[in-house]
C-alpha cells in the first residue's frame, strides 16, 4: 500500500502545484482576516475532496486497469485513498490550527477552546464529507460520482447555513461527542467502498 500512497503524493506535488499553492495562500489569509470562517471551511472541504481528484486522475491514466497487473488488491487501493484523504485533512487541519494559533498569539487572545473546536470541525467535516462521497465514487466511477459529489457539497452547505447561521466556525461543546461517530462513519464507508470496488470491473 505504501507504493500506492507514494504514487498519490507524487501526483499531488506534480499535478496539483497550483491548487496546493492556493491552499497555502488561503491558510495565510485565514490568519490575517478578522473572520477566517470562509477560508477554514474552504480548506477543510478542499482537503477532504483531494482523493476524488486523485481518483479521477487514476481513471484518466488507466491506473485502475493497471492495478490488475500489480500485486495489490482493490481493497488495498481503496484504503490507500482513504488514508490519503485522512492525511490531507490532517495536514490542512495542522496548517490552519498553526495559522490561527499564530494569529491568536499576535493578538494576545489565545483561546484553547476555539482551537479545540476548530480541530473538531476539521475532524467531523473532513471525515464525514468523504465518507459520504467515496462509496458513490468507487461504485460509479469519478464521472458519475461527481454528481453525488456536487449533491453532497450542496447539502453540506445547506446544513452549514442552518447550523452556523452567523457564518462562523464555532461548534457547540457537544460536538465532541460526534467526533468518534465521524471516525466510525469513515471506517464503515471504507469497508463499503472496498466491497463495491471489488465488484467493479476496471
Amino acid at each position: 500500500m505504501s507504493g500506492l500512497i507514494l504514487k498519490d503524493i507524487y501526483r499531488l506535488f506534480l499535478s496539483y502545484r497550483l491548487p496546493l499553492a492556493a491552499m497555502a495562500l488561503l491558510t495565510v489569509l485565514s490568519a490575517l482576516m478578522p473572520d477566517p470562517s470562509f477560508f477554514i471551511i474552504f480548506l477543510c472541504v478542499q482537503g477532504a475532496v483531494l482523493p476524488v481528484s486523485l481518483f479521477s486522475y487514476d481513471e484518466k491514466d488507466r491506473w485502475c486497469g493497471y492495478l490488475g497487473a500489480l500485486p495489490v488488491s482493490k481493497t488495498q487501493y481503496v484504503w490507500a485513498k482513504y488514508l490519503v484523504g485522512a492525511l490531507a485533512v490532517a495536514v490542512c487541519a495542522v496548517l490552519v490550527l498553526a495559522a490561527q494559533t499564530a494569529r491568536m498569539l499576535v493578538l494576545m487572545q489565545l483561546d484553547l477552546d476555539a482551537l479545540l473546536g476548530l480541530a473538531e470541525f476539521f475532524f467531523i467535516v473532513g471525515l464525514t464529507l468523504p465518507a459520504l462521497m467515496f462509496p458513490f465514487m468507487f461504485r460509479l466511477g469519478s464521472e458519475k460520482g461527481r454528481i453525488a459529489f456536487i449533491l453532497i457539497i450542496v447539502a453540506a452547505c445547506a446544513l452549514a447555513a442552518v447550523l452556523l447561521p452567523d457564518g462562523t466556525v464555532s461548534l457547540p461543546h457537544s460536538a465532541a461527542l460526534v467526533v468518534p461517530l465521524a471516525a466510525v462513519l469513515y471506517l464503515a464507508s471504507g469497508i463499503l467502498s472496498a466491497a463495491l470496488y471489488e465488484r467493479r470491473e476496471t
Partner: peptide, 8 residues
C-alpha cells in the same frame, strides 16, 4: 494502454 501515471 500502459496504465502508468502520466505525470511520473
Amino acid at each position: 494502454e500502459a496504465g502508468i501515471p502520466e505525470c511520473l
